[in-house]
């Protein structure tokens, strides 16, 4: 899996115009991360660091896993289909942030 920063640095500027958002990549990353963290903290009533493993810490139950998936799709207007449905993509706030940025920038419907 590519790291969020390198992938975002190269793809985001070219993709910024179609969505009408000219946010710089770094700000974009921060905004996604903050939205995800807020949702997780509200639902788990726990402070959630961006790199904490959500599964090994038991923060994510079976129902909550699906809520998280739906939240990612709804909040960021992306569809997480077939091959993107991996545990690694949802393992932490950082991983989900990378996924969102990749799906937004990727251009395939």
């Amino acid at each position: 899996m590519s790291t969020p920063t390198t992938e975002q640095d190269t793809t985001a500027p070219a993709q910024a115009t179609p969505t009408g958002q000219d946010a710089a990549p770094a700000e974009d990353t921060t905004a996604v991360r903050e939205t995800l963290t807020a949702f997780l903290e509200q639902r788990t009533k726990t402070a959630v660091a961006a790199d904490v493993d959500l599964f090994s810490t038991g923060l994510v139950t079976s129902l909550f896993a699906m809520e998280l998936l739906v939240h990612v799709e709804q909040s960021f207007g992306v569809q997480v289909g077939g091959s993107d449905l991996t545990l690694d993509n949802f393992r932490s706030v950082d991983a989900m942030t990378a996924l969102v940025l990749r799906l937004r920038g990727g251009g395939d419907e």
Binding site: S62, S83, L85
Partner: peptide
Amino acid sequence: GGAGLPVDWLVTS
């Protein structure tokens, strides 16, 4: 797709 996800996650949907 989704193969390898924990069973809970896969069936919840």
